[in-house]
């Protein structure tokens, strides 16, 4: 038995939850799908995963860190007030839940906790939504992700074609489900079978094999068409590199951090003029090594969830599954 609601009545659920939470839903805005605060007039996008990953909910593209005032010899530093609002994401997919596991490793472990990230993570509830069909570039199945059962959600919602089913996973999820239970019916359901993946990647043994491939000629080959535009890193749900800079007006300033990308030359440019990754070969190598070798070595998990966004958005069709295949086949 599962708690269900007809798909066209989903807005009633979201409306009810919006009383207690800032509810973020997958929606299309100006042609781009992303998580958007729910309101009656948002254009829900439930057919396929959103283009922009949910990472910006926890790790905004630009984020204020603290204020300062610098005048002559004096300096004042002031922390910014912390938001208190409880958030809820509806419709996060298994691949993007997996990306939160990766980001948790980065921002919450190894001795230092990133307060900005943790604050948002702690006050955000997650309702996962199962996938019915893989999109053209999806390959999460190859990366150990089950597209119908996410890990780490408070509630798993199931796309039952004309209905949506809800199953509480955590205590918090149980609490949320109780809030909306008045709108839900109880029914025996069958979860539709998931379609066939168009893209696949055989990752078995790749992290280990890469250890000996730092100087392999394949990097020169792979990087040839890369434009170093960074689009892959911006749409990637797991890429998390950031820059720290300031916005200054007269004596007042705000320290911000913003997404950065290892594809840009300035990323590792040092003040003395030396750049340890001077050409795109080193930069492309670092990106794929990071995803497939360095991250697994440091955190025991891949830094790729198989969401396929980079495959779709790369302007020169660099395809990580093809690169995995090349690594696999390389001598």
């Amino acid at each position: 038995m599962m708690k269900i609601i007809a798909k066209e009545r989903l807005p009633e659920v979201l409306q009810l939850l919006a009383k207690d939470y800032n509810v973020l839903v997958p929606a299309k805005f100006e042609g781009v799908s992303r998580f958007t605060p729910y309101s009656a007039d948002v254009e829900l996008a439930l057919e396929e995963n959103v283009l922009m990953p949910p990472k910006d909910i926890f790790f905004p593209q630009t984020e204020k860190m603290y204020k300062f005032k610098a005048k002559d010899k004096s300096l004042e530093i002031e922390e910014l007030p912390v938001e208190k609002e409880e958030q809820l994401i509806f419709g996060i997919r298994s691949c993007d839940l997996k990306s939160l596991e990766c980001l948790d490793q980065v921002f919450l472990t190894k001795g230092y906790v990133d307060h900005f990230y943790k604050d948002k993570r702690d006050r955000t509830a997650l309702i996962a939504l199962s996938c019915l069909q893989p999109q053209e570039a999806c390959f999460c199945g190859s990366m150990g992700v089950d597209p119908q059962n996410g890990v780490g959600a408070d509630i798993q919602a199931y796309d039952l074609k004309d209905k949506i089913g809800f199953k509480a996973i955590s205590a918090k999820g149980q609490e949320i489900l109780e809030k909306i239970s008045g709108l839900l019916a109880e029914e025996e359901v069958t979860i539709p079978t998931f379609g066939e993946f168009n893209l696949k990647a055989d990752i078995e043994g790749v992290p280990e094999k890469l250890q000996g491939m730092f100087d392999h000629p394949l990097w020169a080959d792979i990087c040839r068409k890369c434009l170093n535009c960074g689009a892959c890193t911006y749409v990637c749900p797991t890429c998390h590199c950031f820059d720290i800079d300031s916005e200054v007006r007269g004596e007042d300033g705000v320290k911000i951090r913003c997404w950065d990308t290892c594809m840009f030359g300035e990323y590792t440019q040092m003040a003395g003029g030396h750049n340890p990754r001077p050409t795109k070969k080193e930069r492309v190598r670092n990106r794929f090594m990071h995803k497939l070798r360095y991250f697994p070595e440091r955190y025991k998990m891949l830094l790729c969830t198989g969401c396929g966004r980079c495959v779709v958005k790369c302007p020169v069709n660099l395809d990580i599954t093809a690169i995995i295949k090349k690594i696999k086949e390389a001598e």
Binding site: K110, Y112, C241, I244, H290, F295
Partner: peptide, 24 residues
């Protein structure tokens, strides 16, 4: 060793050599 650094706590990404962060 020296690398360009921003966060100093092994999160911002840029000072890695292999899977090591020089800052951390």
């Amino acid at each position: 060793l020296e690398m360009r650094m921003k966060c100093g706590i092994g999160k911002c990404g840029r000072c890695n050599i292999g899977s090591c962060y020089v800052c951390l």
